[in-house]
Design a protein around this nucleic acid. Structure first.
Length: 154
DNA sequence: GCCAACGTTGGC
DNA sequence: GCCAACGTTGGC
C-alpha cells in the first residue's frame, strides 16, 4: 500500500469533477517521472491526496484511489486531443496512466501554506522548493497527518 | 503577470 | 555528450 499526491488545476478537473465522474483516467501526464510512478509504482487501492494547483489558495481538497492497472493513455493517439503525441510509437506507447476513483472531499481544503508551516510534514516532496512534479510519492505518516488535519478517517 | 526552477530540444 | 535556447509549471 503506497500513498501519493496528484495535482490538478480545479478549473480543468477538480475534486468535484472526480466526485461526479466517480472514476477518471488520469490522462495528459507528459512527464516521465510522473509516468513512471503510474506505470511502475502504483497499485490498485493506493490512496492519493488530491491537490488543487494554480488556484488561490492551493491545497489538498480530498482523497482519490488508484482504481485499476496501468494502461496506455488514449489521448496520445488522438490527433484532436491537446495531449496528442504523434511521436509515440503505437506498438510501444510512451504515455501510461491509471484510473483514479473518488474517495472523499474534505470539508475544508488544507492550504499549501498551512502544510509548509507544519513540522509534522517536514520532508514532504510536494513542499520542497521547485517541485513541479504533478505526481509525487507521499510517506504514510505524512498522508495520515494531512487526513488528520482534515478530520477525515479512511 | 512575474519569474524561479526545472525539463526538453537540437545544433554542434 | 555538452549546453544554450526554449517551453512549462505553479506559487506568489
Amino acid at each position: 500500500m503506497r500513498y501519493w499526491l496528484i495535482k490538478s488545476e480545479p478549473d480543468v478537473f477538480s475534486i468535484d469533477h472526480l466526485r461526479k465522474a466517480k472514476r477518471e483516467p488520469w490522462s495528459g501526464v507528459r512527464n516521465y517521472q510522473a509516468r513512471n510512478s503510474m506505470r511502475d509504482d502504483m497499485s490498485p487501492g493506493d490512496l492519493a491526496l488530491f491537490y488543487h494547483s494554480s488556484t488561490n489558495p492551493p491545497g489538498v481538497a480530498g482523497i482519490a484511489k488508484v482504481a485499476g492497472e496501468p494502461y496506455p493513455d488514449p489521448t496520445q493517439f488522438d490527433p484532436k486531443s491537446e495531449y496528442h503525441d504523434p511521436t509515440s510509437p503505437k506498438d510501444n506507447p510512451r504515455w501510461i496512466l491509471v484510473d483514479f476513483e473518488f474517495v472523499a472531499k474534505f470539508d475544508a481544503e488544507i492550504p499549501l501554506q498551512q502544510m509548509k508551516e507544519d513540522p509534522a510534514l517536514d520532508g514532504m516532496v510536494v513542499l520542497q522548493k521547485g517541485t513541479r512534479l504533478s505526481i509525487t510519492p507521499v510517506e504514510a505518516k505524512h498522508f495520515k497527518h494531512v487526513c488528520k488535519l482534515a478530520r477525515w478517517k479512511p
